[in-house]
């Protein structure tokens, strides 16, 4: 029960461009246990999406390349898996849903065709059985008139319905891990809540682990048990949801939580962390957050802190908390 399904250790994914090498993901550690919902949080450009694409083996290459670390899926290192093995794992063991439901389905094939394709890739089933399974999963994700939708094209569906189809497609082979890369960002708020409910329900019913990649702390609070906070390609804090919201340790996490608007406390200006995320590739010495950090001192600019265990079970990469 406690052995992680997916264990990422020291992952480094670099992009080799004409302007030089860009470490989009630089030393990322996290793990997901069976049936757990893990949140990965961070601003745009912090390496969240590249991390998930690395796990799927879908980093565009060239220019991207995993240059270090391990991705252990049930003990098997996926960074060393060949193309054929990765194809077996994708969709069947680790599935992924994306941010843009409007453009993530192929516009020229019917929904049914795309669902059945996913099923028959990983199961030697006849068309009839695959069709029935597809209808069943569409009902499970709460799509009305499933049989009719099987014969529809993506453009005939709304954004929310398309994201449900994406979830159905990801869940159809009962994967062990579902990576959801900002699954609700492009949807309006009421639909967002429905999709999150659906994912929570699927997580309970099927015991699939979910990695929820988001920049929305509200989503995290709603869904996740544990949270990994990323900044500039590194994990800077990892803790349970309750610890993060009650006692954030890293100044960046503190800033993130402060910048969530509070309904009860009407302010004229919303809080924002000063400065911007450093451009990937513009590596500086010391802590990457130091230039934006109000608590930074000399050591922060000179030495890079490690991700260290804290007394309450969380892990933080910050000289304020590390020795």
């Amino acid at each position: 029960m406690d052995a992680p399904v997916l264990d990422v250790k020291g992952l480094k994914t670099y992009f080799f461009t004409d302007e030089g090498e860009v470490p989009a993901v630089n030393d990322v550690d996290f793990h997901v246990k069976r049936g757990e919902v893990l949140g990965i949080v961070g601003e745009s450009g912090c390496g969240k999406s590249v991390t998930s694409l690395s796990v799927m083996g879908l980093v565009p290459s060239p220019p991207g390349k995993i240059v270090g670390g391990e991705i252990l899926y049930k003990g098997e290192d996926l960074t060393k898996a060949n193309d054929k093995r990765m194809r077996q794992i994708r969709g069947n063991d680790i599935a992924m849903i994306f941010q843009e439901p409007m453009t993530s389905l192929n516009p020229v094939y019917k929904i049914g065709n795309q669902l059945i394709e996913a099923i028959r890739l990983h199961n030697r089933w006849d068309k009839k059985k695959a069709w029935n399974r597809a209808v069943e999963i569409m009902k499970l994700v709460g799509l009305p008139r499933a049989e009719e939708l099987m014969n529809s094209y993506p453009h005939q569906l709304s954004g929310g319905m398309r994201q449900r189809v994406m979830i159905a497609m990801a869940m159809v082979c009962e994967p062990e891990v579902l990576i959801a890369d900002e699954p609700t960002t492009a949807l309006d708020v009421t639909i967002q809540a429905q999709i999150l409910d659906l994912m929570k329900r699927l997580n309970k019913e099927t015991d699939t682990s979910i990695i929820m990649i988001t920049h929305d702390l509200g989503v995290v609070a709603e869904m996740c048990e544990r949270i990994v906070v990323m900044y500039a390609g590194k994990v800077i804090e990892e803790a349970s949801v309750s610890t993060i919201f009650k006692e954030p340790k890293h100044p960046y996490t503190v800033g993130l939580i402060q910048s969530v608007p509070d309904m009860r406390d009407k302010k004229d200006r919303l809080y924002s962390i000063p400065g911007t995320v450093p451009k990937p590739g513009s590596i500086q010495k010391g802590c990457q957050f130091a230039p934006r950090c109000e608590h930074a001192f000399d050591r922060c600019f000179a030495e890079t802190p490690e991700l260290e265990n804290q007394e309450d079970g969380s892990r933080v990469r910050c000289w304020l908390h590390n020795s």
Partner: peptide, 10 residues
């Protein structure tokens, strides 16, 4: 995006 989806299916 849909090409990425197709690849993510395996």
């Amino acid at each position: 995006d849909y090409i990425r989806t197709a690849r993510a299916k395996g």
